[in-house]
């Protein structure tokens, strides 16, 4: 398909048939300047078919990779189709595509490579997330702020806008599961600039979150491990021409 735009909205979706249609429609209405790519992460329902009918380009992963692998597929797509800018929007209706304007304005004003939407900077907390999850987020925020020497308030937010350099970095290397927190540390290591802007987040329209209570303990431990190990990693990504890394990466 010929590129119609220089901007791409990536919507990773795993069994989100209840909401995906509405989200695509809203992105199309609010931001007609964005192409829409749905990464169907091995859904067992008709998420991919609904997305296709709604007019989105659909990337069908042959099996479930998890959010990290799905979003990275979006980065690779954006890289190979020469998109200048890529937005990541959740498939469950948590994010308001109209607020992409806020993210884009911040990217221009502060000349950053990545902009994250933060629900905690917003004065209007219509959906503050349950207390247990909020505590986890604040712990990550505290640690990250310390590591990257910049105030981070919502490191788990999946509402993000990436410029070309962000796309290039993450197409090459992106964490496997629960990638958002670690990705911020990677930005810092690679000296990419990021900032946060206040956004609203809504309760999911339907379907089930990928993070159940059983998984959240694993989530905490995994991300903490990734953060501390990541801290000890002087060069997180192997550059082209170096000896092959343990982890195969794109384009090397």
């Amino acid at each position: 398909m010929a590129n119609r735009s220089t901007h791409l909205a990536v919507i990773p979706a795993y069994n989100e048939s209840a909401t995906i249609g509405r989200v695509i429609e809203r992105v199309g209405r609010e931001r007609p300047d964005f192409d829409v790519l749905v990464v169907d992460d091995g859904s067992t329902d008709d998420t991919g078919a609904i997305a296709h009918r709604a007019g989105a380009e659909v990337l069908r992963l042959p099996f479930n990779l998890g959010i990290g692998g799905a979003v990275q597929a979006g980065f690779v797509y954006a890289l190979e189709h020469d998109y200048r800018c890529m937005a990541q929007v959740d498939a469950d209706g948590q994010h308001d595509p109209a607020e992409l304007a806020t993210l884009m304005r911040a990217m221009d004003e502060h000349e950053t490579d990545v902009v994250c939407g933060s629900r905690f900077l917003s004065s209007d907390m219509s959906y503050p997330a349950p207390i247990s999850r909020r505590t986890g987020i604040h712990i990550f925020a505290f640690l990250l702020s310390l590591f990257v020497r910049q105030r981070i308030t919502d490191p788990t937010s999946g509402f993000r806008l990436y410029g070309r350099r962000g796309i290039e970095l993450f197409a090459r290397d992106y964490p496997h599961d629960y990638p958002e927190v670690e990705a911020i540390l990677m930005l810092h290591h690679h000296r990419l600039r990021m900032c946060e802007v206040p956004v609203q987040m809504f309760e999911r329209d339907g379907g089930a979150s990928s993070i159940t209570s059983g998984k959240s303990a694993y989530y905490m431990v995994k991300v903490l491990l990734a953060l501390f190990v990541g801290l000890a990693r002087r060069r997180p990504v192997v550059e082209a021409g170096e000896s092959a890394p343990v982890f195969a990466s794109h384009g090397i």
């Binding site: 069908r60 992963l61 597929a73 797509y77």
Partner: peptide, 19 residues
């Protein structure tokens, strides 16, 4: 670990080629 990373890259590539 290496295999799962390689299969991830392959799955992404298959999806891109499919599209």
């Amino acid at each position: 670990s290496r295999l799962s990373d390689q299969s991830k890259v392959l799955a992404q590539r298959v999806a891109l080629l499919d599209t």
